[in-house]
Every structure is written in C-alpha cells, then in structure tokens.
C-alpha cells in the first residue's frame, strides 16, 4: 500500500494512539510533578534519615531500565494476586495502563526530584537571608522566594525530562497499551507495511517539536524580567 493509504485507513487509530501517548506521558509527569518539589526540598535540606531513604530510591530508579521497572510492577504484581485482592488493589494492577502510568510516575519522580534539588540549591543564599530578615514565615519563604526561583532554574531541565518520559512511554506498548507505538506495531503486524512505523516516527517528531517550542515560550513567560530586559536592550 501507498503510505498515504495507510494513513487514510488507520489514521483514526493513530490519533487514538496519540491521545494515549499524551495521556500516559501527561499523567506520569503530572503525578511526579506533585511529589517531586517536596521530595526535592527534603533531599536538599533534610537530615540523615531523609538522605538514607531518598538516595537509594533515586539511585535505583535511575540505575535500572524503565522496561524492567514496568515488568516488575505489571507481571510482578500478578504473583501477589491474593494479597492484592484482599486489599482491594487487584483491579488497579490488573490493567496494563495503570501499571504503565504508575511505573512512569515513580521513575519520573526520581528524575524530577534530582532536577528540582539542583534548582533549590541554586537559589542564592542572600535571597533567603533577606526574606528571613523581613520576618517571612517558612511557608511564605518557600512560596514566594525558594520555589519561584528554583523552578526558573530547573525549568529547561524539567522540559527535557518530560520529553525523555514521552519517548520512554513507547515502552507501554510492550505490555499491550495502544499508544502511538502500540498502534504502529499493530498496524505493521497486520499489513506488513513499513510506512506504519514511519508515520509513528512523524507523529513523535511533531509532538516533540511542538512541545519544545511551547516549553521555550513558557520559559520566557516564567521570567518576565528577562523579557523586559531584552526589550529594553533592543530599543
């Protein structure tokens, strides 16, 4: 078949696959994004207990392949079926989609924590001292000084991490989730038409391209003072 015919026949499935890829990437990144700032704070400022708990977690998540983590959660949970059923958790672990999102969220939490820790440690000491000097409480200090600056520092690296997660989400197809990669494999197995894989490549490249552009724009929105300086310099 001609590559255009493949798209005409299977286009809607590819679109569904795109929705699935965006869903697992987005949910994985979002769940990780909810936990990472607090873990990063803990990692940057915590004592020996915090380090003793967080370091092995981060090291294991970053030192083992995501595919192995996914298999451990999806197939490994099957071995504990009676226990999980007793706890009422089995319906969750039975679904490959849930396991994939859980694996991606756990993995991305480790990476995002390390990125944000770098951001938090990059906040100049003087800013924190000044905030303390005018009597900010700890919570206000975090909300108004530490996190806004830490996120500005970490923003480009966070964008990279989301792209890496999007690429890694193709692994979900191995446990029968029909994301872009899953649909491409299915169509290829049915039609033996190689262009199915090439269309998947085009979709992934478009998504990365659009995401990079949007993220770069958001970087500028996050730092309006830099934007103002650029404008002044141009004038």
């Amino acid at each position: 078949m001609n590559p255009m015919d493949i798209l005409a026949v299977h286009g809607p499935r590819f679109l569904q696959g795109l929705g699935m890829t965006l869903l697992i990437t987005g949910l994985g990144a979002l769940i990780a994004g909810l936990f990472a700032p607090w873990l990063a704070l803990w990692r940057a400022q915590g004592g020996a207990v915090a380090q003793g708990m967080l370091r092995p977690y981060i090291s294991m998540m970053r030192g083992t392949p995501l595919l192995a983590q996914l298999f451990l959660i999806y197939y490994g949970s099957g071995q504990f079926r009676p226990e999980l059923q007793a706890m009422g958790l089995w319906p969750f672990f039975r679904e490959p989609l849930n396991c994939a999102i859980l694996a991606f969220a756990l993995n991305s939490t480790a990476y995002q924590t390390e990125i944000l820790r770098g951001g938090i440690m990059g906040v100049p000491r003087g800013e924190i001292e000044a905030a303390r000097a005018i009597g900010m409480t700890r919570w206000t200090l975090l909300r108004r000084v530490v996190f806004p600056h830490a996120y500005r520092i970490a923003w480009p690296a966070l964008g990279n991490e989301i792209i890496l997660l999007m690429k890694a989400s193709a692994l979900a197809s191995v446990v029968t989730v029909y994301d872009v990669m899953g649909v491409a494999r299915q169509v290829y197995q049915k039609t033996f038409d190689f262009s199915a894989l090439l269309w998947a490549a085009v979709i992934y490249l478009l998504v990365t391209g659009i995401f990079v552009t949007l993220w770069r724009q958001s970087e500028r929105w996050l730092s309006p003072h830099v934007l103002a300086m650029e404008k002044r310099a141009r004038r």
């Binding site: 890694a168 193709a170 197809s173 490549a201």
Partner: peptide, 18 residues
C-alpha cells in the same frame, strides 16, 4: 533532532524491520 525526538524503541523497530 530526529534521533533525539523519537522513542528508542521505535528507532530499533525501524532499523530491525526497515
């Protein structure tokens, strides 16, 4: 750009089958 924007698994499939 293409190699860094595409899932490694997809690259592997394209090389293996293509």
């Amino acid at each position: 750009t293409t190699m860094r924007g595409m899932p490694e698994l997809l690259t592997l499939f394209i090389v293996y089958y293509g």
